[in-house]
Design a binder for these strands. Sequence first.
DNA 1: ATACATGCAAACACTTTGCAGCACA
DNA 2: TGTGCTGCAAAGTGTTTGCATGTAT
Lengths: 137, 137
Amino acid sequence: MKNRNTLQRRLVLETVRRMHNHPTADEIFREIATENTLISKATVYRNLKILSEQGEILHIPIPNGADCFDFQTAPHYHMECRGCERVFDVDMPYQKDLEKKVLNRNGLLIESHHIVFQGLCPHCQEQKALEHQKKTG
Amino acid sequence: MKNRNTLQRRLVLETVRRMHNHPTADEIFREIATENTLISKATVYRNLKILSEQGEILHIPIPNGADCFDFQTAPHYHMECRGCERVFDVDMPYQKDLEKKVLNRNGLLIESHHIVFQGLCPHCQEQKALEHQKKTG
DNA sequence: ATACATGCAAACACTTTGCAGCACA
DNA sequence: TGTGCTGCAAAGTGTTTGCATGTAT
């Protein structure tokens, strides 16, 4: 008898489905808390874990930062902006065949992969351009 | 006048160059500490940061775990074993052209990328096989 | 002489856990 | 009714920082 349908679990799921900007656990917590309902951050973490294990939401592990979550569960790639550190969806088909390109000379069994791109979002590109103008006069 | 050649910085660099198993900051700290020299963990972190910024060593950010470092500075990919959580080099050429496959419909500027594979190392494949034998009798 | 580096401890960011009470099935 | 869930606080993990002192150049 697993997986009870509690108010808190429903709220976490609904909130992730509603926020389309790769929210972190903390952002989800704040979104729920500011609305009306009292919820514990531990509960948010626990439910995010359960929901992503069940495939209801997608867990995106972020190196050097808070992991974030996505309502879109089909595997896809992300870019982390080195300016604002926000996470964006990348417009590239999922490379199913990438894992086959690994030579198994060393006996490793590959099961899945993640690609994280680094770069600049449009807004931060502008910022950098302005900074550069200022410097060069 | 940056970048002084201190004993601690030399030790961190030498230790990373000597350990060929993707050590974490803590493993590097313990390696240096157990030998002979007193070193602070903060100093290890500071020097790892400086050395990787200078391209002397490679910083490998690991989602959901301690970042690790590599004496081999040419870009290459890694696999994280879901059994023992160790990091292994993956035998696949660097996909320089991957970034060009991203459609810039959304205006993102891609500068670099990381691929992390998940899977099982040879040792953990054996372990899993033994476990399975035990269960099925 | 003076930046830059160090050691130490405290702070930090993110996440998990122990426990007593609560509530869904 | 009982297992699963919650809130709270505390602990855990990995990393950074403030500060007084030390040292390479």
